[in-house]
Design a protein around this nucleic acid. Structure first.
Lengths: 109, 109
DNA sequence: CGTGTAAGGAATTCTGACACG
DNA sequence: CGTGTAAGGAATTCTGACACG
């Protein structure tokens, strides 16, 4: 049922490692979280946990910042992409629903 | 040239996360390293860094320990597998070498 | 706006050792 | 042999704030 995440999306990397992986400062990483560009999870004790996807996203963000794009703009971009992907998802499911209605239940929702 | 490791083999997970992921105690994890069953890397400050592959291996190890197999046996098993894989690798390269000699250089060593 | 930094505290990790069995 | 635990210290991470611009 629930999308069961590959390694790439598992939140298991602490901020120090992310710093080493991206070359960004911890300050920058925390700031981008504050601006809602990334969403690390938390350990029981409160430490941030990132995924490889987050690491890649951070590098994209860093590039855009260097190009002078503001975090607010980056966030809006990301929301637009998110919205588009959601719509594609809905469309896909509707088409699948049509097929199911005509030809019966199929595997792979 | 150098095998460029997928996410699965990157050493980026600290011991606390590995503990949560495997259900093992930190003591057990450190002990299996001491017995040369796993080989975490180290951060600049000395903290262990594991990969997802290590995490999976640890779960296999834990199962074998439960079955009463000793760490020394597990290590020998692993060395045997390692050896076999190396031989397969050599064989593969030799065959590829033969092909190259007869039909010229090909992509994908 | 984006980032550096010093501050103080809490969580994390490390090693070597004693214990049990 | 494999694992728990208390011990002391060092490395890691956290938050809120001041600074600059």
């Amino acid at each position: 049922m629930a999308k069961d995440m590959s390694y790439k999306d598992k939140k298991v990397i602490t901020i120090g490692i992310v710093r080493d992986l991206t070359g960004l400062s911890e300050r920058q990483i925390r700031y981008y979280e504050e601006r809602k560009l990334i969403f690390p999870e938390r350990s029981a004790g409160g430490s941030r946990k990132f995924s490889f996807t987050d690491v890649e996203l951070l590098m994209d963000i860093a590039n855009k910042i260097e190009d002078g794009i503001q975090t607010h703009e980056i966030r809006k971009e990301m929301l637009r992409e998110q919205k588009k992907q959601n719509q594609d998802e809905i469309r896909r499911k509707m088409i699948q629903g049509q097929l199911n209605a005509q030809f019966g239940i199929r595997r792979n929702s």
